[in-house]
Amino acid sequence: MQPIVMPPNIIDHFYLGGERIAELRGVGMPSPRRPEEWLAATTFRAGEPGVGPSRTDSGELLRDLIAADPIGWVGSDEGPAGDNGILVKLLDPAQRLPVHVHPDRSFATSHLNCPYGKTEAWFVLATSGEQPSVWLGFAQDVDPAELSRRVDAQDSDWMLGRMNRIQVKPGDGILVPAGTAHAIGAGVFVAEVQEPTDFSILLEWSITTATREESHLDLGLPLALSATNHHAFSAEYLQTLLTYTDPNGRSADPRPLLPPAADPFFRLDLLAPGPGTAPSLPAGFAVGLVFDGQGEIRSPSGAPLSVTRGQVFAIPAGFGDWSVTGDVQFLACRPGAGWPGTLQVSA
């Protein structure tokens, strides 16, 4: 099997942005609210089953190809049908994203009939503006009843004022455990990897085109808000969620871009070969993004495949062990270690 070049799959959303995605992927900007692209995705947007899953150039859904040949595509037939085990996005916000929370696997199993929660992580590709920042977790314990009142009042200043604000730069990797209140600031262009769901609980909707009714996954706001971690992140714990990798560095080996605690959920590596080297990864499903440069993907099972800036690939397990050569920055996004055996379908 050979990797497939995936055409753009850019998503309209309730917040502004998308110019850097359009430039990278070589497409137009018909709307100012096209801030996300879902890459080689098999996930549906919550409440909108026609939005999210990626199609090939010939119009086939990637999820249908995986469902028809799970061994060839993901190396196992034990996971949910058509599931690739990961959701990868490009996010290019031109405004601050709203404060929001994602449920963990226990909450999702109990209330959303899904074995996945939505732990996620960001790798910062580029920034613009003054003090580009993200907000991650609470800096002090928050009373659940008080948080509920502030959400009702849409008191953005109160919420942001109790969160950890982190100034970011290209090369930063940030893990966002499920249950964590978080937001991404304007101008922070990221590659986002996450569990393959679209479960978002909005603590703040008034800065977007979303409404209160769209904020709680049809669970009712009191139950939805119970998915929030109300406890403060200590400085020591916060540091375990952050890492930095020189995005311009070169290496004979893949370079992990996220803290080790991300590994059970997803893996994100940079393949940026040095002269005469070919960093490699073992066989398994991967989403590949050529962020810069050009080169080749190589595998013993087939002919080399040329890659160039802006391309996105769905790389099947049947391609075998593979490597990257050339003057290129290639992001490889993979499901968590041990997937799908790590999923527990029953409550």
Rank of each mutant, 00 (worst) to 15 (best):
P8C: 09
N9D: 08
N9K: 07
G18N: 11
G26E: 00
A40V: 04
V51E: 12
P53C: 12
L61V: 04
L65Y: 08
A68F: 11
A68M: 13
W73N: 05
E78D: 15
G79Y: 07
A81N: 10
I86G: 01
D92C: 08
D92K: 01
Q95D: 11
V99R: 00
V101E: 04
S106M: 13
H111E: 10
N113E: 11
A121Q: 06
L125A: 12
V151M: 07
W158P: 12
N164I: 08
P170Y: 00
G171P: 01
D172A: 03
G173V: 07
L175R: 02
G187R: 06
I201T: 00
E204Q: 10
A210N: 13
L221A: 10
L225C: 04
A232C: 06
Y237R: 15
L238K: 05
P254M: 06
P256Y: 05
P260W: 10
D263R: 14
P273C: 03
G274A: 15
P279V: 02
A283W: 05
A283V: 13
G284I: 08
F285D: 08
D292E: 15
G293A: 14
G295S: 14
P300Q: 02
L305C: 04
T308M: 06
R309L: 11
W322T: 04
C333N: 11
G336W: 01
